[in-house]
């Protein structure tokens, strides 16, 4: 393979990785934008989404098969279930803590994350579950670069979800309310916006997107594991910060940028795949130090 082919192959890999990151980063950024909460449990919702999708797939596979029909159906069911789970978490754990000190809220979020990941671990005995699908291995061949139809389908569905979200945020009343609450919650309350309802909806959408990414990851990697949410949670946060936390477009852009950086970064000599995570966390730390507002984030009023 020529250098160009390698680069193109990594471009494809980076796009797939990036679209997972972007989907998960969206939930992070939406929740952060609206209630300034760093939802540590978000990566675990992605993991739950993968497992619940896996469960639904084994339930519906008799009827719809393990191909696109079955996968789509279980993905939607998983999105709804995990969306509701996200709402439940918000109601039980985060709502009582909104007035508490920041440290307590962060510890709450961490505890929720640990409950989810260790709960799934206890249920699955910490084993990998094979996410068996029946999608075949056909694909497009362009020169020496090979991309399966599955990979193309995953990127396209991620893009579709993001476009839908984008229209929802920018063209509907709910979306407008969401953006307004992010700016000033009290003013929204005074204007008669049902703030709690909008926050609930935000959690639902954010969690559902994570679940969608989880199911896609299950299809892509072929297996699911209770710990899969930890690293992606960190990566998605990195993506959200790259784009500028709180910014929807930023999360999408950040996800793609991080995916591509990782794909190309592992091609740099001495940065093998075992250093991939160090590479992206390193980016996160450098970014927070030198440009904490990210690429598309708004600069806050500079204090001190």
């Amino acid at each position: 393979m020529s250098t160009l082919d390698i680069l193109l192959q990594q471009l494809a890999n980076g796009l797939i990785l990036g679209s997972f990151y972007a989907l998960v980063a969206l939930g992070y950024t939406m929740v952060y934008g609206i209630i300034k909460l760093l939802n540590f449990a978000h990566g675990d919702l992605y993991m739950c989404g993968a497992f619940i999708g896996f469960l639904f797939l084994s339930l519906v596979s008799g009827l719809l098969g393990e191909s696109w029909g079955g996968i789509l159906c279980s993905m939607i069911l998983s999105m709804i279930t995990v969306g509701l789970l996200g709402v439940l978490i918000q109601r039980v754990a985060y709502l009582p803590m909104l007035a508490a000190p920041r440290l307590s809220i962060l510890i709450t979020a961490l505890a929720v994350s640990m409950v989810l990941s260790n709960g799934v671990m206890a249920l699955t005995d910490g084993e990998y579950e094979a996410f068996s699908t029946d999608l075949g291995f056909e694909g497009l061949e362009m020169g020496n670069v090979f991309v399966t139809y599955t990979q193309i389908a995953l990127v396209v569905s991620a893009a579709l979800l993001m476009v839908t979200l984008f229209f929802f945020i920018n063209r509907t009343m709910y979306g407008k309310a969401m953006r307004a609450i992010a700016i000033d919650q009290d003013a929204c309350r005074l204007m008669g916006i049902n703030v709690n309802k909008v926050i609930t909806l935000t959690f639902f959408i954010g969690s559902a997107l994570a679940a969608a990414a989880g199911v896609m990851a299950g299809v892509y990697y072929g297996s699911v594991h209770f710990f899969m949410g930890f690293v992606i949670g960190l990566k998605a946060f990195t993506a959200a910060v790259i784009g500028g936390i709180g910014s929807i477009r930023g999360a999408m852009l950040g996800g793609l940028v991080l995916g591509l950086l990782e794909a190309f970064g592992t091609q740099i000599p001495f940065i093998g795949s075992e250093w991939k995570d160090v590479f992206s966390f390193g980016i996160l730390i450098l970014l927070l130090v030198f440009k904490p507002t990210g690429l598309l984030g708004k600069t806050e009023i500079e204090r001190m």
Partner: peptide, 8 residues
């Protein structure tokens, strides 16, 4: 899991 629930 137990520790996580206790912490929560």
């Amino acid at each position: 899991l137990v520790f996580a629930v206790v912490m929560l």
